[in-house]
């Protein structure tokens, strides 16, 4: 059992999400940074997609009610166990009564805590992932708060393990995202098409699991035509009338009415989960023939370590 002493800014339970429900208006949700989440589970000896704790920005304090091992990954949050510094991206033994604290995110937005055996939670449509707008998953569909208790599951598992050299992702407050055009790309005016790739943007305070409002050069359309609501994906950059672009994230709306300018390539989607308010965000073009090659290389690298994982 794990007791939440303080839920911090926003801490939720996430797993691999509930895909293929966007036609019902339900986004897949799941861990915002799929790679760090999978590594946390791998270190704890779990299947990569076992439910784990996702802490946004920091402030989380939890107490362990039994001896176990945790995998800690994602943004560096100056983690401590009983006041002693512990290293990020490591498997950590914890004992009954130990208190783990995460302070504040330094180089990203989200940290993951996986517990050996995984967490035992009810599922909605095949997933325990928390989706706050409709109160799905997690504990009563809410963010974790003081007094919540999480039950540790006893699924068969591997022994805890350390990440081999070269597999730890480098996180930073400057996020570079490779992209391909989205359906309304051609409607952007010429200066905007250039600005998107040369000027950096900053994630505003309006940044959460649903999306990130970016501050930066105004992006404008050649001609703003009325648009009928149309499907939308996580990783789509939308251009509202005020020209301040919005990047849809893992809990983003399933349909939208703003022009869609860019789509982040699949191999880079995990990075969206590390965009914190204030992060610098830059977009790069990806050649059409490169996107599948990048994905294939990334998948074969990590699936060699994490059984069944793909970006």
């Amino acid at each position: 059992m794990i007791e939440i002493l303080n839920g911090g800014t926003q801490t939720t339970i996430q797993d691999a999400g509930r895909p293929n429900l966007r036609h019902l208006g339900i986004p897949a949700s799941g861990a915002a940074d799929k790679l760090s989440f999978a590594l946390a589970n791998w270190m704890a000896g779990n299947r990569w997609d076992a439910p784990a704790i996702e802490c946004s920005l920091g402030g989380l304090h939890i107490r362990f009610k039994s001896d176990t091992t945790i995998g800690l990954a994602g943004a560096e949050m100056w983690a401590q166990i009983n006041g002693q510094n512990v290293k990020n991206f490591t498997a950590l033994p914890v004992h009954k009564g130990d208190i783990l604290t995460l302070s504040f995110a330094r180089d990203g937005c989200r940290a993951y805590i996986a517990v050996a055996g995984g967490l035992k939670l009810p599922e909605f449509m095949g997933s325990s992932s928390t989706y706050l707008p409709a109160q799905l998953g997690g504990i009563d569909g809410c963010a974790l708060k003081t007094g919540d208790k999480l039950t540790i599951s006893n699924r068969p598992r591997e022994a805890p393990r350390a990440i081999p050299k070269g597999y730890t992702p480098a996180l930073s407050r400057h996020i570079v995202l490779r992209s391909r055009p989205a359906p309304e790309w051609e409607g952007l005016d010429r200066p905007s098409k250039r600005h998107l790739f040369v000027s950096p943007f900053h994630a505003s305070a309006a940044t959460d699991r649903m999306g990130s409002r970016l501050r930066g050069d105004k992006i404008t359309m050649e001609k703003r035509l009325p648009m009928t609501s149309s499907p939308l994906l996580p990783g789509t950059l939308q251009i509202p009338p005020d020209g301040q672009a919005i990047l849809a994230l893992v809990d983003g709306h399933c349909t939208g009415g703003y022009p869609r300018a860019l789509q982040i390539i699949r191999a880079d989607l995990w990075l969206l989960g590390q965009i914190a308010p204030g992060s610098q965000v830059s977009f790069r073009r990806c050649f059409p023939e490169d996107a599948p090659k990048i994905l294939k290389a990334r998948n074969s690298f990590y699936s060699g370590l994490i059984d069944g994982f793909s970006f």
């Binding site: 293929n20 966007r22 036609h23 009928t228 499907p231 994906l233 349909t255 994905l295 998948n299």
Partner: peptide, 16 residues
């Protein structure tokens, strides 16, 4: 994912 719109349909495939 297969997501219908009013006059459009989004078809997401597994690039891997």
């Amino acid at each position: 994912e297969i997501v219908p719109g009013y006059d459009s349909l989004l078809c997401q495939f597994d690039l891997s």
